[in-house]
Design a protein around this nucleic acid. Sequence first.
DNA 1: AATGAATGAGTTTTCATTCAT
DNA 2: GATGAATGAAAACTCATTCAT
Lengths: 217, 217, 217, 217
Amino acid sequence: MKKLDTSKSTKESIFKAAVYLFYDHGFDGTSVRDIAKRADVNPATISYYFKGKQGVLEACFTHFFEPYLRFLQEEVEALNYVSADLCLKRAVYKILKFQSENHQLSRFIWREVSIDSQVVREIISSYLMKERHYMKRLFEQGMKDHALKKQPVSFLVIQLKSMLTMPFLHSQQLREVWQMFPQEYYFIDQYYKNIDQWIDLLLVSEAKEVMKKELII
Amino acid sequence: MKKLDTSKSTKESIFKAAVYLFYDHGFDGTSVRDIAKRADVNPATISYYFKGKQGVLEACFTHFFEPYLRFLQEEVEALNYVSADLCLKRAVYKILKFQSENHQLSRFIWREVSIDSQVVREIISSYLMKERHYMKRLFEQGMKDHALKKQPVSFLVIQLKSMLTMPFLHSQQLREVWQMFPQEYYFIDQYYKNIDQWIDLLLVSEAKEVMKKELII
Amino acid sequence: MKKLDTSKSTKESIFKAAVYLFYDHGFDGTSVRDIAKRADVNPATISYYFKGKQGVLEACFTHFFEPYLRFLQEEVEALNYVSADLCLKRAVYKILKFQSENHQLSRFIWREVSIDSQVVREIISSYLMKERHYMKRLFEQGMKDHALKKQPVSFLVIQLKSMLTMPFLHSQQLREVWQMFPQEYYFIDQYYKNIDQWIDLLLVSEAKEVMKKELII
Amino acid sequence: MKKLDTSKSTKESIFKAAVYLFYDHGFDGTSVRDIAKRADVNPATISYYFKGKQGVLEACFTHFFEPYLRFLQEEVEALNYVSADLCLKRAVYKILKFQSENHQLSRFIWREVSIDSQVVREIISSYLMKERHYMKRLFEQGMKDHALKKQPVSFLVIQLKSMLTMPFLHSQQLREVWQMFPQEYYFIDQYYKNIDQWIDLLLVSEAKEVMKKELII
DNA sequence: AATGAATGAGTTTTCATTCAT
DNA sequence: GATGAATGAAAACTCATTCAT
């Protein structure tokens, strides 16, 4: 009955089990006993390590948002040395790759974000405010530098965020209805190209031309 | 003990209460008792009318997908008389408007669609297959008529669907983080322009030019 | 939706449905809605006619015990004119036949009799006291007349009652395990012979011989 | 809040409480809350140990049929060394004694056996088939050895089973109407004599006589 | 470090019944 | 005579958590 191979720490295996089940059935649709069974541990062990179901949820958010925000932050910092459109594109690519590599966690996070549980919101709101800050910087700096076409930022960010999250949020729909597989490495390469094109068409092209003209003069 | 004002039918008021609570807390996060309390009826009444919590869920899906698919179907049928890019845009507008008017239901639906409850999927899959069919028709007919630029359809549909659903799915994030209000009538007008622009840039422009050239010759 | 043929009164069809379901699933295992569905009436109708589930139960007991006790009573009265062993045998036969013709009701009654519901017992106890009275008379008169061998009555009655009720109480077991069919007319003929033999061997034979001797002298 | 005296294991005390209540009110007439209250535990504890009300029922069947069938099996095996009529009688006595010592369980079992719950039947049918097998062996071997009179087995078994179960099934009727007490040790001794007599008269006597004659010759 | 026993609170659903019509 | 709407009560069960070990 005892686990023979405890190479992977108990805590980690609980986390993995939780992510998988949250991904499939949602937070409210998953019971600690489900997690315990899948991780092959006693339910009490989960409370022991995570101090309750809530704690597992918080761990999930941390595991997602910390890398996610780091990618944005890196590119915002790079704005000082690299043109904004490039930074934006690199951020997009990193985020797509990260989500693809953690597609279960991603789907779960973006779904749960849309639930009005008071607890979730307390955890999340600061993350989202940071995201907003970085996103805005990326776009606004670009416009200031004429790397990006001037236009209201909000709608653009919404559109971009839509495209960044949707394939992972509705991954199963993509798989079953559209035969696309967001967790495969080649998917993000292709999908990235589409967003790249979107950035070029809506944001960059004219701006760059304007910039070129200005440079000529 | 009896209700005096049964102007709005009991069944309807249960449905409304359910939609609101599902929208806020998700299906699994909402109890029958919550719904009953909000609709000011006895919990048993819900089973009486909907034959269980499940039944309420099914009613939600029906209420959403039946109009939703009708809009798509209408425009697919219009393809015979009207240019594809226009049909596409009209479908987009109708869907945005419908979702805006039913933003609670919309958010809930698109969130729940991403949950792997076996029951949900049985209900949903046929709806989604129909959606796929109509969407493909709209794009492919357009390309055949040279109204739309030739390119792989799947990624376009995914992008479009992203943009159509996301503002409603993450409405609360939009409100709290971005001060945008998807349920307001002016939002969709503005947001529609962005998608319109996306269609023009990514899909139409060149195709129409090609068409013009062909017409000249 | 309305019943076309109301030839058989609603009340009767409710009763029939109830007997069938009680027979199969027991009183507590049957809901008024089950009965209503089977009788194709509204559940309220049952309360209307029988004044509640309880009332249906009482009707069942009446329908069973009134004929049942009448058969016993008839033979007790016949004791004045006919020899006791014959009366006993005739009672046995009548009861077997009656139960065979009402095997569903019989099974249900004998099962329910063994349940300590306070309500059931109030209804039943007077019936059972009457049964005891008649049974004792049948045996004791027989012994007084030397038609039956003298011996403690109680055990005999218990044995007889066992044999009278068991095939109907465990009818389904008889069917499935022993391929015997207590509701078929030929079954009771055969089964009667066995009880007849039992009566002859345990009760009559010696007594009759004694009687014969007495008559001779 | 914790129980101080867990001398009798919790599981066992739940089982005892359940048997008592099932005996009195039947399975469907007993709620888990009733059991929990009687066993002085939390209702959830019952699901914890028995995995639901159903599980308690199954435990009851096991506790009854395993010894019951063992007694039969023992005597069937003894057929090789001991005359069939003796084996039969010993089986009868063992079963009577066992039922007397477990009269609550016995009554409940024989009553519930007569209910057409699909679940009950799945559990039971294999037990009953085994019972049939042993019973037939006991009778048929006896007839082959001329220890028992030749005659159709089925009816005999039915009669025997009737007499074996009835006093326990209708124990309360026996007590209240006939002032007999099947759970008292002296009852089974007396009752056994009656069955013994039945066996001798219907089955053995002639056969033994035949056998004696054969031995003489 | 990890668990088995046990629970209080809460889940959905079913039940028998009532009452206006 | 018969019913549809509605319900209070109770059913079985599940849940996250605790605590002694």
